[in-house]
Design a protein around this nucleic acid. Sequence first.
DNA 1: CAGTGGTCTAGACCACATG
DNA 2: ATGTGGTCTAGACCACTGG
Lengths: 264, 264
Amino acid sequence: MADVPPGSADQEGLSELATLAAAPYEARSVRPIWLQIYDRLADVIRREVVAPGAKLPGEVYLADLFGVSRITMRRALALHQNEGLLQARKGVGIFVRSRPRRFLIRNDMQFAESLAVDGGDITSRTLWLGRQKPSPEAAELFGIAPDDEVICLHRLRQLDGAPIYVSRKEFPAARFPEFEARYRQSGSVRDVFQSAGIDSFYRSETRVLGGLASRSEAEVLEISPKTPVQYVTAINCDASGAAIEFNRGCWPMASVELVFAVPH
Amino acid sequence: MADVPPGSADQEGLSELATLAAAPYEARSVRPIWLQIYDRLADVIRREVVAPGAKLPGEVYLADLFGVSRITMRRALALHQNEGLLQARKGVGIFVRSRPRRFLIRNDMQFAESLAVDGGDITSRTLWLGRQKPSPEAAELFGIAPDDEVICLHRLRQLDGAPIYVSRKEFPAARFPEFEARYRQSGSVRDVFQSAGIDSFYRSETRVLGGLASRSEAEVLEISPKTPVQYVTAINCDASGAAIEFNRGCWPMASVELVFAVPH
DNA sequence: CAGTGGTCTAGACCACATG
DNA sequence: ATGTGGTCTAGACCACTGG
């Protein structure tokens, strides 16, 4: 075995990692080695033997530690990235995700409100704001022509600085002539609605569908491409039932649990 | 290249597959080869060059066709299995999924009703029916002791014979003393409810969360272990608001889109 | 520059399903 | 017995990051 951990977590965690790695494997036919390594890593991470946010030793070192080839080691690591426990950064290392828990998102709450339930510091970053041709769905929803304009807002939500949700919202331009100015003032869509005379609105429909992150989505969310994600599309309507917002967002699958409660 | 397709799709499709495979690749730095192969396969499948349900040529043959190693070929194939377009069967071959489209499941409809919208033949298979200790969630929901009993029903839903949804339902035993007998008569939970004097019920809460299929889930759904899935937990209540059913189901991520509409 | 993760190869053995 | 997909290896080169 290699005997030098090349710049990584603390000694204590590493020695326990080494102990776990040294344990004999079950027969390959019972459970593939890479899954057994996956299990041991899960154990190590969940028990915080390596602290959240800490860097793991390099792949070659780990492969050596677990007595397998680098390919096999990578397979176990890759699966954990799919589930969100680990995140690799090219040229840097593999890190334990600092917030592996899941967030409850309730359909009867505002976004920030429902995140706040879980504690932590929620911030929002505007990635892009401008006017575009509408998506087909939005055009139909708003009842506008395909070459009309919509106001388009790309936003990233972060928890304690770590990105967890990216969304693209579309609004009918005719209804919000001063959208950009208003939004730049407050940074809040709710305020824009209010300044346009919309005091109350409701979510008329929410759709959930699974998928694998595209390259651009993966980039802003700081996950690997093709990681499983949840796409959520939502439609907000004003009190009269007219659609005022079409929203399509994307979460890493592992970091969110969606709750749809029926008021009764 | 190998020149014999060892027992597979029709000749026409194969020759077109070969043509596509022979096209030059973009630079590896632009897009990894395995992703480029993945793209071409997606194209071939979506255009039904190989028919739904058909068997693909073997991995070694394909690897040869695409001019890459088997490992690289496998990587492209594996990703398509994650997305549900392909499904491998050990010792048999890799098949194009016959129903790659997604099903809309609406929260304001009964399950079968909402599947029927899409056409196709829905069948239901009872995997297990008996009494057990409740899950912690169900115990709390029903307000019973952890060592009380619940009626537990495992069911598999199939569309045109292909499994697409597996669920585990729990019911409070005290409320349905004749559950087993009634269910065996009609095979319908709704009928059991009715015979217990419950004419109307509603879904009070639905939760959606993503995950990777366990071994047992993968087995009944005929997918590979660790394929991304959607877990849906639902609570049904009678008219008075008392919980009468706790349901936890599992879909292959790629085969379902969940719609939550608010009546207005 | 050195270290990291990402990609790719050629070859091997295994368990499984089918004829 | 044969062909299939599933696992594993040793070694190589690349692109990216950071000091």
